[in-house]
Lab assay of single mutants.
Amino acid sequence: MKVIFLKDVKGMGKKGEIKNVADGYANNFLFKQGLAIEATPANLKALE
């Protein structure tokens, strides 16, 4: 799943980066902790 990092995550990515991560990792950790959001077309447009 493609995500946009909202904060730096050690060993994974930096704020503003777009990366592919495992679905479970994104849903169970990154999204719940507020560290990333899904890289949807609307979210990608908002990032620009």
Results as ranks from 00 to 15, higher is better:
Ala36Trp: 02
Met1Tyr: 07
Val9Tyr: 04
Leu47Lys: 06
Asp23Ile: 15
Leu35Asp: 04
Gly24Ile: 14
Gly11Trp: 06
Asp8Ile: 02
Ile37His: 04
Val3Cys: 02
Val21Asn: 00
Lys7Asp: 09
Gly24Cys: 11
Pro41Ile: 11
Pro41Asp: 13
Leu6Glu: 01
Lys19Ile: 11
Lys14Phe: 12
Glu38Tyr: 03
Ala46Arg: 14
Ile4Val: 11
Ala39Ser: 04
Ile18Met: 07
Leu35His: 03
Asp23Leu: 15
Leu35Phe: 10
Gly11Pro: 08
Gly11Phe: 07
Phe31Asp: 04
Ile18Trp: 03
Gly11Asn: 10
Ile37Tyr: 04
Phe31Lys: 08
Lys32Met: 14
Phe31Tyr: 06
Ala26Asp: 07
Pro41Trp: 08
Gly11His: 08
Tyr25Met: 13
Met12His: 14
Met1Lys: 09
Ala46Glu: 12
Ala46Val: 11
Lys10His: 13
Leu44Cys: 11
Val3Lys: 00
Phe5Leu: 08
Ile18Val: 14
Phe5Met: 06
Lys14Val: 12
Ala26Phe: 12
Ala39Met: 05
Lys45Ile: 14
Lys10Met: 14
Asn27Leu: 15
Gly13Trp: 10
Gly16Ser: 05
Gln33Leu: 14
Phe5His: 00
Lys7Leu: 08
Glu17Val: 04
Gly34Pro: 00
Pro41Cys: 11
Asp8Gln: 03
Ala36Gln: 00
Val9Asn: 00
Asn43Val: 09
Lys10Val: 12
Ala26Tyr: 12
Asn28Leu: 09
Ala46Gln: 13
Ile37Cys: 07
Gly34Trp: 04
Ala26Gln: 06
Leu6Asn: 02
Ile18Asp: 03
Gly34Asn: 09
Asn43Arg: 06
Ala36Ser: 01
Asn20Leu: 15
Met12Asp: 03
Ile18Thr: 06
Ala26Lys: 05
Ala22Pro: 12
Tyr25His: 07
Asn43Cys: 08
Asp23Cys: 15
Val9Phe: 03
Asn20Cys: 14
Leu47Gln: 08
Val3Ile: 10
Gln33Glu: 12
Asn28Glu: 11
Lys32Thr: 13
Glu48Tyr: 08
Gly34Glu: 08
Lys2Asn: 14
Glu17Gln: 10
Met1Ala: 04
Glu17Trp: 03
Gly13Asn: 01
Leu30Trp: 04
Phe31Cys: 05
Ile4Ala: 02
Lys45Cys: 14
Asn43Glu: 06
Lys45Thr: 10
Glu38Cys: 08
Leu47Val: 07
Lys2Gln: 10
Asn28Arg: 09
Lys14Cys: 13
Asn27Tyr: 15
Phe29Glu: 12
Leu6Met: 08
Lys19Asn: 03
Glu38Phe: 04
Tyr25Thr: 13
Gly34Arg: 08
Leu35Gly: 02
Gln33Lys: 11
Lys14Ser: 11
Lys10Ala: 13
Lys14Arg: 11
Asn43Ile: 08
Ala42Val: 09
Gly16Lys: 02
Glu48His: 13
Val21Arg: 00
Lys19Ala: 14
Leu6Arg: 03
Lys2Ser: 10
Ala46His: 13
Asp23Met: 14
Lys2Cys: 15
Lys2Asp: 09
Ala22Glu: 15
Gly16Ile: 00
Ala39Thr: 02
Met12Ile: 13
Gly16His: 08
Ile4His: 01
Leu35Ile: 08
Pro41Tyr: 09
Asn27His: 12
Asn20Arg: 13
Tyr25Pro: 08
Lys14His: 10
Gly13Phe: 08
Phe5Asp: 00
Asp8Phe: 05
Gly24Gln: 13
Val21Tyr: 03
Lys45Leu: 12
Met1Glu: 02
Lys10Gln: 13
Glu17Ile: 03
Lys19Met: 13
Ala22Met: 12
Leu47Arg: 07
Glu38Thr: 05
Val21Gln: 01
Lys19Glu: 04
Lys45Val: 13
Ile37Leu: 10
Ala46Asp: 11
Leu30Ser: 00
Lys45Gln: 11
Gln33Asp: 11
Phe29Leu: 10
Ile4Ser: 01
Phe5Trp: 02
Gly24Met: 12
Lys10Phe: 15
Asp8Cys: 07
Leu35Ser: 04
Val9Gln: 01
Gly13His: 05
Leu30Lys: 00
Val21Ala: 02
Asp23Gln: 15
Leu44Phe: 02
Phe5Gly: 01
Leu6Ile: 11
Asp23Val: 15
Leu6Val: 10
Glu48Lys: 08
Lys15His: 05
Gly11Glu: 06
Val21His: 01
Leu44Gly: 02
Lys32Ala: 15
Asp8Tyr: 04
Leu44Met: 11
Ile4Leu: 10
Phe5Lys: 00
Ala39Asp: 02
Thr40His: 04
Gly24Arg: 11
Leu6His: 01
Gly11Val: 02
Glu38Met: 07
Ala26Met: 08
Leu6Thr: 09
Thr40Cys: 04
Asp8Asn: 13
Glu48Asn: 10
Glu48Met: 12
Lys32Ser: 12
Lys15Asn: 04
Phe31Glu: 06
Leu44His: 05
Pro41Val: 11
Gln33His: 14
Glu48Trp: 06
Ala46Ser: 14
Lys2Trp: 07
Phe29Val: 14
Gly24Ala: 13
Asp23Ala: 15
Ile4Tyr: 08
Ala42Ile: 11
Gly11Met: 06
Ile4Met: 06
Val21Cys: 11
Lys15Met: 10
Glu48Leu: 12
Asn20Ile: 15
Ala36Pro: 00
Met12Leu: 11
Lys19Arg: 12
Leu30Ala: 01
Gln33Ile: 08
Ala46Asn: 10
Asn20Lys: 12
Glu17Thr: 07
Ile4Pro: 00
Ala22Thr: 14
Val9Cys: 05
Leu30His: 01
Gly13Val: 03
Gln33Ala: 10
Val3Asp: 01
Val21Leu: 07
Phe29Tyr: 11
Asn27Glu: 15
Val3Gln: 00
Asn43Leu: 06
Asn20Met: 15
Phe31His: 03
Phe29Asp: 09
Lys7Ser: 10
Ile37Val: 13
Gly34Gln: 09
Leu6Ser: 02
Leu44Arg: 06
Gly13Asp: 00
Lys10Ser: 12
Phe31Arg: 04
Glu38His: 07
Gly24Tyr: 15
Lys32His: 11
Phe29Trp: 13
Gly16Met: 05
Val9Trp: 05
Leu30Val: 01
Tyr25Asp: 09
Phe29Thr: 08
Phe31Trp: 03
Phe5Ser: 01
